[in-house]
């Protein structure tokens, strides 16, 4: 399936994978699930779950204060 991965502040990627999880999408754009949150329609989703949408938003952690 084809999914648009919108990494906020950095740009969008089109990812084409067979039955991916959200973690698989992150691996494709070289991000660790420990440094981002994945949102679908503004709600966070568990990264180990199968993708059920064609558009995800990825928020990077902000280091420090």
């Amino acid at each position: 399936m084809r999914v648009t991965v919108d990494v906020k502040g950095e740009g969008t990627h089109e990812v084409d994978l067979e039955a991916p999880t959200y973690a698989d999408l992150l691996a494709e754009v070289e991000l660790s699930p420990h440094e981002v949150s994945v949102l679908v329609d503004g709600r966070p989703v568990p990264e180990d779950q199968p993708v059920e949408t064609d558009h995800v938003t990825v928020l990077r952690l902000i280091k420090g204060g």
Binding site: H34, V36, S37, P44, L59, L61, I62, K63, G64, G65
Partner: peptide
């Protein structure tokens, strides 16, 4: 608490956390 969970907590609790990184970091 892992950093990611701290960020998720701030997001879900809608806390007024500042969200840019220090330019000199």
């Amino acid at each position: 608490v892992p950093e990611k969970e701290v960020a998720l907590y701030a997001h879900l609790a809608d806390l007024p956390a500042h969200i840019t990184e220090c330019p000199h970091s």
